[in-house]
Structure formats: structure tokens, C-alpha cells
Design a binder for these strands. Structure first.
Lengths: 216, 216
DNA sequence: AGAAATACATGCAGTGACTGCAGACTGGCT
DNA sequence: AGCCAGTCTGCAGTCACTGCATGTATTTCT
């Protein structure tokens, strides 16, 4: 940042070559959010820090939070999906919870940035919220995958429509599991994500028989 | 609206006496949103329609959507809660789904306004989203209620903490059920809310044995 | 090489939600 | 009459975000 005024900067002179502008913005956004919190970090601050105009910022990111969270669209992990479909374990929902590992976003991106980003996102309820909203984009996909397993354990007197709706419902239940985990992630931050997921899964397995079916 | 300038208007002359400003704003907001959609309805439009300043608008409502959704905080229905706690049916989650009927907000408010509001909210994904976010405020309460039933069907080797966490998890699952229902509400709008809820409940009962426990 | 297309960056003016502040009118109370 | 409290107001400001017209560097075509 330092001096942003004058025509000087315009020549994104040396730096711009090596690292793409978008990446520099991302890094700066994550760092500033970690330092000041999401609400207290203005787009102008990020722009000043990076040395670009606000217009440029919005040419790269549609919203302020996109710069912090990243732009990659979450996808289901192929191999996990295959395993899930193939498996015939008794704990469908718990198995499905394994699909959310969480969905890899950037894959090959800088792991250090990923770690910082994770901290930044979990530090702000707003950001966590937005993050979860993004995951909604795989919900339909998730429902499709679930449908395979569900069809197998459904009786013949249930129509395909029934099964499809049940799959969608299950996907929403799974979203609930995600939210629960995300909440835990923000409070009991000490635990690592994989640990938390495993813990949630166990909890779910013990819980499910109590919720419906013939238990009780 | 017509002319908002000058000192003239100041006398929200006749109308202001009968109906409180906040109510007039609510009505106008709902009506305008139904007509133009949420995004295309600006706060200024509402203000002009009602004949108040923007500052007044925000003195009554913290946000634009609050004017449409209403300000009442959702609460669990006492009698439903008692019934739920007392019951020992096998379908805990499905029973809990009955608690969300949906939580009454305004109770005594104008039923016609309530109906319009419902239409307005279900017409916009943004508003539905906000509405659901509000329900999050009863989630803790919900978890407490669920804990009673859950404690009853839990084995002795599960700690109180376990049960509490399972209750919170269940509350989140229930939130998933709500979201599923809300989604259905926005698309298959024909069905009435009570019908939809009953339908979801049935679906849930048939679904649960397939998800975990000993089924399959 | 030179022209033209392309991609990225910029300033600028504008919209729309929302806030803080200070002033003004109202109705009721003493 | 004088005062308090509640309500309403304009105004100026912040912040996210958009459209547009322009500029410049790099690539690609000829």
C-alpha cells in the first residue's frame, strides 16, 4: 500500500508480471480480513494494498467475499462418489457425509493460502454463511448420487418420483450435517477438519437409529 | 407520493393518525415487492409510496427485507412443544418436523397481510433465504426441546454431552427438512403449506429407516 | 515490421442500501 | 406555559457494486 496516489502506480510495473492480479488480490484480501475482520475490511483497503483500482477488483471478483473465499466452484470428488455408490453399508447418511470432505475447491492452489483462507472464512460468520451457500450448488448433484444408493434399498411400491424426492430430502439433511460441522468448526476450532468430520459421522451413526425406523 | 419535496409533506397529514407508520410501510413494501420483485423494489420507491423519508424507513426497519418479512421473532409454539415432549412415538425426527408449523411470527396480525407476505416471500429466493436465516434463531431452542426426547431413548453409556450434541445435530437436520420444504414451497406453490408439511413428514418416515439404523 | 485484435486496467459517474447527526414538530404532563 | 419524549426529517457520508468510454500492453495476423 503506502502511497496509492499519483499516476505512478498505473504501471502495475514489476510485480504484475509474475503473479496474476487476481491472485495478488486474493492474498491481500485474506490477509486483511484475518487482520481486521471481514466487515472492517473495505474493498478500497484491499485495492490500495494491492495497488489496483476498485474497478479492476470487480473485474476479477463479483463480490467482496469472492475475493476471500475464492472463485473455484465446489465439486464432488469423483473417487469418493464411486466408493459411495459401490458401497452397501447400512449407514447411508453417514456414508454420504463422507462425500463432503469438504469438496475440493482449488485443488492445486497454494496450500498456505488455502490454510489462511480457511482461517479467514471460519473467523467470520458472514463468510462461513456464504461458503455454505456455495455448497448448495452441489446439492442437486449430491441428490443424484444419493439416488443410486437409495433406489437399491427402496421397496417396489415406491415410485421413482418418491425415491427422487427422498434423495433430495436426504441431500438437504446432509446440508444440515454440513452446517452442524461448520458451526463446530467455528467454535471448537482446535480440532482439525478431518477429525471433526469423523466425529460428526460417529455421532450421526449413533443418532440415526433413535430418529426413526424401528429403534426406540 | 407525488411531491416529496418542500416542507409541505412533513404533515404526514391525515393518514398517519389511524395506522402506524411501520404498518403502512410494511403493507406498501409487500405490495410493491409482489408487483416488481424484491430486487427491483427500492427503498425509495416504498418511501415515496408511503410518503415518508428514507430515514424514517430505517428508523422502523433495520433492513429492506425486514419491511417485507416483518419484524416479529419466530417462536416455537408452546402447545406443540408440550405434545412433542410428552409423545413417545418412534419417529422422533418426523415428530419434530411437526414443531415447525411454521413458527408463528405475528400471531394476531392481519391475516390478509400475512397471506400477501407469504406470497411475497416465496416469490423471491433472496427473501426465502432471509426468512430461513431467521428461523436459525430458534434452532438452539429446538435443540433443547429435542434433548428431552433424545435423552429418553439414549443408552446409559452415552454422556450428557453426547446427547446434547446429538440434539444440536438433530436440530440441524430439521433445518434441512425446513429448507427442503421451503424449496418445495417456492416451486410447487399450488400445495398449501400444511399439506406440504404433511407430505414431507410422510416422506421422512419412509426415508429414515433407509438412512441408518438396522434397516437395509 | 506494422496493423489489428485481445486482454487487462483505469477513471468516472451513478445507484442503492444503510448510518450518524442535528434539528423540528407532535402530543401529553406538570 | 414550559418541558419531555417520541416521531419524522434532511443532509452528508460510507460502502458495495455497475456501466461506459478510454487507454495501454501483449498477441496474433498479414
Amino acid at each position: 500500500m503506502s502511497d496509492t496516489s499519483g499516476p505512478r502506480a498505473h504501471s502495475n510495473a514489476p510485480s504484475s508480471r509474475g503473479i496474476a492480479t487476481a491472485q495478488r488480490i486474493e492474498r491481500s484480501a485474506v490477509a486483511l480480513v484475518l487482520e481486521h475482520g471481514f466487515d472492517s475490511t473495505t474493498v478500497d483497503m484491499i485495492c490500495a494494498d494491492v495497488g489496483v483500482s476498485q474497478r479492476t477488483f470487480f473485474n476479477h471478483f463479483a463480490t467482496k467475499d469472492a475475493a476471500v473465499i475464492g472463485t473455484a466452484v465446489p465439486r464432488l470428488d469423483e473417487s469418493l462418489v464411486r466408493a459411495f455408490i459401490a458401497s452397501t453399508g447400512p449407514d447411508l447418511l453417514a456414508d454420504a457425509a463422507g462425500l463432503i470432505a469438504f469438496p475440493s475447491t482449488d485443488g492445486a492452489a497454494d496450500p498456505e493460502l488455502m490454510r489462511q483462507r480457511m482461517r479467514a472464512v471460519t473467523s467470520s460468520a458472514v463468510l462461513m454463511q456464504r461458503q455454505l451457500e456455495r455448497f448448495a450448488s452441489i446439492e442437486a448433484e449430491l441428490a443424484d448420487v444419493i439416488e443410486y444408493r437409495l433406489a437399491r434399498v427402496s421397496s417396489a411400491d415406491e415410485s421413482a418420483d418418491d425415491v427422487r424426492e427422498q434423495s433430495r430430502l436426504t441431500a438437504h439433511l446432509l446440508a444440515g450435517v454440513m452446517r452442524y460441522t461448520a458451526e463446530a468448526l467455528m467454535t471448537e476450532s482446535p480440532a482439525s477438519l478431518p477429525d471433526l468430520l469423523a466425529q460428526t459421522r460417529e455421532r450421526l451413526i449413533r443418532l440415526l437409529p433413535k430418529l426413526g425406523g424401528r429403534a426406540n
